[in-house]
Structures are given as structure tokens and as C-alpha cells.
């Protein structure tokens, strides 16, 4: 997994609430049993003019020149709610998004982000709106900087905003760690637990 340390990039404001994973990657765009080949389908329902087509909708933010280079997405509350499909995160990552800043996230989506090298940053509504205002004035020139070591996001006007992230998630992103390998280091503890549990709750063991 790609490490996340600091990032200075164009940020695209998509200030809608409840952006669900069906909107991020419509089911019809998940055509293969794979984690790749999804970037084209990202936001397909909004990005293209007619369902299933590839005619770009010029009104959609990610189709506008400076935002094509966006690595950061600004959005409204409850981003990534709905279906658990990790394809939403894979599509965002493949398209180039490395961080999403929103007042809150769907729980499964947030976990999926961390496991795929995307940093979910939770900041107040008013802060996100202010960031959107600042970048909109000059998207290519007014960049956001996110420093995960310091847990700090710096706005184009220099204002710094601290954000919180669970230490384990932070470490996983900073180090680009593989969660399975990390857990398997505790294999003895897991097996010992299982042996005790088998006595305690025999009905679980088929």
C-alpha cells in the first residue's frame, strides 16, 4: 500500500451531503472480479451525460480542467454512506484521490479508505465550506496541504486546522502497512483464544 505522509494538491469541492457509494461507483461499472479498472466508472452517473455513456458532463466538477488534477476531495456530511462496496475507494484511488475532507463518513467507507492509502479527514462543516470557497477562487493556484505526521491541514490562506484520526489508522497510512501481516504476528494469542473459546462456546464450532 502506498504510504501517506504529506500532500499538497488541488482540492475539488463536491459539497453534497450523503454522497453514497452507488454514486461514487455505480454497480454497473463494477464489471470485473478485480480491484482495478474502476477509475473510468468513478461518479459515472454524474460525470457522464447519459447512463452508460462516456460523454463528459462539463458541469461536473471533476471534468473541469484544474480539478482533473485534484488529489483531494472536499465533500458534505456522511460521505461514502450506503453499500459496503470497496470498489468506491478503489475507483477514487485509481482516479488519483489521496485524501477526502468531509464533516463525516460512512463507517465502512472510512475503514476502506485507510486500508487503501486514502486519508479521510474529518473537519467541521463550516471549515469544509470555507476551504471550498478558498480553492474555488483559483483552483490551480490555491492548494491544500495535509500533513499526516502533524495531523494538520493547511488552507490556501495559511490557516491551519488540526484533525483527529485513530492512531492505528494513522500508523497504517504513514507506514503503508499490510493489516493481515500485522495481525498474524499475534497468531499465538489468536490460537490460544480459539482453544479456550471452543470449550466455552462449543456451539460456535461446526
Amino acid at each position: 500500500m502506498e504510504k501517506f505522509t504529506t500532500l499538497t494538491a488541488v482540492a475539488a469541492p463536491l459539497l453534497r451531503i450523503n454522497v453514497d457509494t452507488d454514486a461514487i461507483i455505480p454497480s454497473r461499472e463494477m464489471k470485473k472480479v478485480a480491484k482495478t479498472g474502476l477509475a473510468d466508472g468513478l461518479f459515472a452517473g454524474w460525470r457522464y451525460l447519459t447512463p452508460g455513456s462516456r460523454d463528459e458532463n462539463p458541469a461536473f466538477i471533476l471534468n473541469q480542467a484544474p480539478y482533473r488534477r485534484a488529489r483531494i476531495l472536499l465533500s458534505g456530511a456522511n460521505f461514502g454512506c450506503g453499500s459496503s462496496r470497496e470498489h468506491a475507494v478503489w475507483a477514487l484511488a485509481e482516479w488519483g484521490i489521496r485524501a477526502i475532507v468531509a464533516p463525516g463518513f460512512g463507517a465502512i467507507f472510512q475503514g476502506n479508505c485507510v486500508r487503501n492509502g486514502i486519508l479521510p479527514v474529518v473537519l467541521d462543516d463550516a471549515v469544509v465550506e470555507d476551504l471550498a470557497r478558498q480553492v474555488s477562487a483559483d483552483p490551480a493556484g490555491r492548494l491544500l496541504t495535509i500533513d499526516l505526521h502533524a495531523c494538520r491541514l493547511t488552507a490556501p490562506d495559511g490557516t491551519a486546522h488540526s484533525f483527529e484520526i485513530a492512531p492505528a489508522d494513522r500508523e497504517m497510512l504513514l507506514e503503508g502497512l499490510d493489516a493481515i501481516a500485522l495481525t498474524l504476528k499475534r497468531d499465538e494469542t489468536i490460537l490460544a483464544f480459539q482453544a479456550r473459546d471452543r470449550q466455552r462456546r462449543p456451539w460456535i464450532y461446526l
Binding site: K35, E86, I108, F109, G111, N112, R115, A166, T183, I190
Partner: peptide
């Protein structure tokens, strides 16, 4: 509860999940 695919791999391989 619902999980993502990467977490499902974790649960399959380790019989556990890391949860908050």
C-alpha cells in the same frame, strides 16, 4: 456488520478484525 473486501480478507485469513 458490513465490512469492505480488504477487511473480509483479514477476517478470512486471521479469524479476527481490528475494531474501534
Amino acid at each position: 456488520w458490513g465490512i469492505g473486501t480488504t477487511e473480509a480478507e483479514h477476517a478470512l485469513a486471521t479469524k479476527t478484525l481490528v475494531l474501534r
